[in-house]
Simulated assay, not measured.
Amino acid sequence: MSWCWTPSVCAHPGMILSRAQYGQISRYLERLRPNRQGLKLLMEQFPSQSQSTLLSIFSLEYQKRMKRTHARHHTTEACETYYQRYLSGVMNNAAAPVLFELANEVDLAPSLMARIVLEKFLQEHEQAIPSKPVINGMLRDPSQIPDRVLANQVYQCTVNDSCYGPLVDCIKHAIGQEHEILLREKLQRKRLSFLDEDQLRAKGYDKTPDIILEVPIAVEGHVIHWIESKASFGDEYSHQCYLQDQFWSYWNRFGPGLVIYWCGFIEELDCHRDRGIILKDCFPEDIVTLHCTMANIDLGKDR
């Protein structure tokens, strides 16, 4: 998914899919390239699905594919082959998108191809293995690359990459921040008292959810002490990782909580409600506050 195609957070809400529905989309994605044409085909194939849901699944599945094939692309032989093909290609036509087309040919994310070739170039010209900060800095700002042809090739890769690279990382971060702002605004409209992540860190907490409610609420009969915002689709792999790395630790420290997957999630993953973690694809409107509960108790007394 090219994140610059992502719609406004309010325009296209996510959707809850069954595991079977997700599997159908996932299988179809295996035959697509991670570009605008591939995304267009995906949306034509599944017109009833939310755009934000398909965009997020598009990105998630391609990232899984890159992880599965990472070792094949990063052998010494493969890296040398890619570098030599780059040199040969720009020698024939320096203006052609050599690196980008090579990445598409071998089914590697363009930004990852740019990283491989940039590392090989720097090793050859500086006789040393470049550090990660140096590589990352040049990928973010190709004008730092001491070769104008390579700088242009790297730039073409990073701006046209759908799922990886500094531009995608920047837009992902911005979208995540946008959803966190949306969440805080909704809590404020409900006049709920809460502490956000920055306030919690200022108090000395090191690993926290996005929101801690100072007064718990109830959602669909479940007490909620904290809320985590995820500007993505909740698939099996990412959700299990989040459970292990984040959600259960939040549960241990702060009690039961709510996770909002704004781009939707697989329905069967919402199976821990009785243990204290519930999933939603939007901010719940039917919340019960302590204020409402106390008001009902007072009304009962008056009767």
Rank of each mutant, 00 (worst) to 15 (best):
Q45N: 06
D169P: 01
V223Q: 03
R303P: 01
W3V: 08
Y205E: 14
K203S: 12
F121C: 05
T81A: 11
R191V: 05
N296C: 13
E77I: 10
L17C: 04
M1D: 06
K230F: 01
D274N: 10
M138T: 06
S229W: 00
I57S: 08
T69L: 13
P216F: 03
G300F: 13
K280N: 12
P166S: 14
A20I: 09
E228V: 05
Q153G: 04
E236R: 11
S56G: 02
Y261P: 00
S56M: 10
L99G: 03
D298Y: 07
G255A: 07
A103W: 14
H125N: 09
P133C: 04
S2F: 13
D298I: 09
I287Q: 04
D107A: 15
Y261L: 01
P284D: 06
W5K: 13
R68D: 07
G255M: 09
C163A: 14
P110C: 08
I211M: 06
P133F: 04
I260C: 07
I224T: 01
L118Q: 04
R85V: 00
L122T: 02
P256M: 02
V168R: 11
L32E: 09
D298V: 08
A78D: 06
G234E: 00
T53M: 04
A11G: 03
R36H: 10
V106D: 14
E30L: 10
Q127L: 10
I227V: 13
